[in-house]
Amino acid sequence: MTITLEANDIRKKFGGLQVLKGLSFRIEGPELVGLIGPNGAGKTTLTNVLDGAIKPDSGIVRLNGQRIDPLAPYEVARAGLGRTFQVTRAFRRMSVLENLYVPAMAMGRARSPRDCHDQAMEILEFLTIDHLRNEYGRALSGGQQKLLELGRLLVLNPDVYILDEPFAGVHPTLMATIYKWIQRVNGQGKAIILISHQMESIFTLCSRLLVLNYGDLIADGVPSVVKNDPAVIEAYLGHDEDMSGTGMVSLKEDSHA
């Protein structure tokens, strides 16, 4: 069975401001999709809508054919959609291992820590933070906390992963681990939506880009095409974003994976 995430005409208003103006897209199987757009484009709101934290005013979200937009976030997580947060949200006063036990036990895959200890240790070793297993979450550095969040997602083992700014403030050596993590998940046939301002990573990793601007989906396609799209260039340049810094212009045509 292929993994599918379909969003159909998602609209959301906050007060008088239309944050999402009827978004539709479909993501399938082992796809790695980049979701980009200037600040305030609606990326985080879209994530919250997909995750169930915010109910859309209208529109339908389906995961593997099951309608998930009316569900609570925990039900969405159990249905197979996992996310990270823009600001790291490690459980600060729980040990690293306990952080990983939470999804395992919430999903009912383990009745006690003993059942999921081996899996948790395997994941911590993969993420190279196994030596910190008994430390509190708050004792970890910002980058290590990001890794811990990714580790929790591996335990959750959803079908679709949404990563909100996984590279922000991460040390280059840990960056390699995140790349490795993405390859592992993608290799399992899972879909990943990657939200990032670091264009280099986006262009290296993603096979498809969704570009949001003021709640509209202004482009959807392979990165090499998207970055020459006049609407996209306008969206970025029109808001004084430094294109050379983001790598939008300087990247070579054939750079995507």
Binding site: D51, A53, A72, P73, Y74, A77, R78, G82, R83, F85, R89, A90, F91, R92, R93, M94, V102, P103, A106, M107, G137, R152, L156
Partner: peptide, 13 residues
């Protein structure tokens, strides 16, 4: 520690 994060990991808070 974090209600939203717990919820996103499948905990029925």
């Amino acid at each position: 520690e974090d209600e939203d994060a717990a919820e996103a990991l499948g905990v029925d808070t």
